[in-house]
Design a protein around this nucleic acid. Structure first.
Lengths: 238, 238
DNA sequence: ACCTGAACACCGTTCAAGT
DNA sequence: ACCTGAACACCGTTCAAGT
């Protein structure tokens, strides 16, 4: 027996290896069980060693999100515009379904990661390319809310999380390079006191989505819709 | 100078006083800054004293949620059915707007508190009373998602949170006394492998809301809608 | 120059000891 | 019987000391 205790193969510990080692237990036991110390132990390493590859726990979480978001399919080339958006959003949902922590982490971080921004920009671009004006596209994106990223947060579901909520206005330079995200900043800046993000009237966005949904429900009710026919939109309504 | 250091008036410390003392700093500095120890210190009390009034931190959070949800207005008596639902949901939003942590805490706890369940039951009941069949009401409630409780979680907002995500099926006796919540358990239980809650096909609910929204966007686009006209639903569409 | 152990300032909660 | 200090098993991160 040598002097090293029961040394594991000791791979050189890259940032990628750290991230992969973090995602696995988060999927299994949940993020709240993920700590720097535990992660280090799992890698057979002293906690401080992690700080060579991630600046702090926040950057670790960001890196984990990037890894998951990278799994969203690119836009399908040939389909119709609305179908393409639909397909993309369902792909995002599929990518996040195996990582229940991802949605919460995305919301918990103070700003979106580059991959998240790029994905958002791309979805918004699909609306624009489909002939949607800036104004409507902007409200539509807000109306989709969490759905754009592929998750719903139902109240009766058990999803975890603690934290405070500050809303720092989106710094304009953070959005450079994402033209579709930046576009409505000038075009659709409303007034009013409940302004968040880059100058959106959050109350208006809320009511926009609420009214669209309530209106859709009422239309379905009048037509005697039941879920046996499945799909709520499209051919059923148009 | 007496021997007691600078003793504050020393009120007898009830559960209510604990909850009120917890809500205030959560509104101000965020929940992540709220700890049992800090809360105790703020009350001029040893940490253990809190455990006489709340079993643990989880029950403290639940109690804080109950306090906030209690601020939602009761249903308005005379208005039309759709307007009443709309008004109620906007009241819930207003009640939660000053407590940015509430939405996250509600989602983070493993089950809804009685006040949350009662509110949900009441909103569902408003749909039923308005002539909506069980099936459509069920999907509508899911489609409203977080909106039912008055908050949206926009991706670009900075809302915080950590935690894992287990989805324990809704225990049937937990829903006794909330007839409208319990109703679809038998009526609208779908099949499929992505079943959550009390047997809902989460994928179907997701696509239901997604299609309603995409369809609404398309309809607005075809009519050349702009946000100058404000309200997206109602008279504009019907 | 590189790495890391010990330390700091925290947690939620238990539990035995003190009055 | 009541209350509570100390303690336990954790955190994320700093920092000085070791090689």
């Amino acid at each position: 027996m040598t002097s090293r205790p029961e040394a594991a193969p000791r791979a050189p510990l890259s940032r990628d290896r750290v991230l992969r080692a973090a995602v696995a237990p988060a999927d299994g036991t949940g993020i709240e069980a993920l700590s720097m110390r535990r992660l280090a132990q799992e890698l057979g390493v002293v906690p401080m060693a992690l700080y060579k590859h991630v600046a702090n726990k926040g950057q670790l979480l960001d890196g984990m999100v990037e890894a998951v978001v990278a799994g969203i399919d690119p836009p399908a080339p040939g389909s119709d515009r609305q179908g393409a958006v639909r397909q993309r959003i369902l792909s995002a949902r599929a990518a996040l379904l195996g990582h229940p922590w991802a949605a919460q982490v995305i919301r918990s971080r103070s700003g979106p990661t580059p991959a998240v921004l790029a994905y958002l920009d791309s979805v918004i671009g699909m609306f624009r390319a489909g002939g949607f004006p800036v104004d409507l596209t902007h409200h539509a994106t807000h109306a989709l809310g969490g759905r754009v990223l592929g998750f719903t947060q139902e109240v009766l579901d058990a999803a975890p999380d603690p934290d405070p909520a500050r809303r720092p206005p989106m710094p304009p330079e953070a959005v450079a390079g994402y033209p579709h995200v930046a576009e409505p900043a000038g075009a659709a800046a409303h007034d009013g006191d409940s302004v968040v993000g880059g100058g959106c009237d959050d109350q208006f966005e809320f009511e926009f989505a609420l009214d669209l949904l309530l209106d859709g429900f009422e239309r379905l009710r009048l037509r005697g819709w039941t879920s046996d026919g499945r799909r709520a939109g499209g051919d059923l309504i148009a």
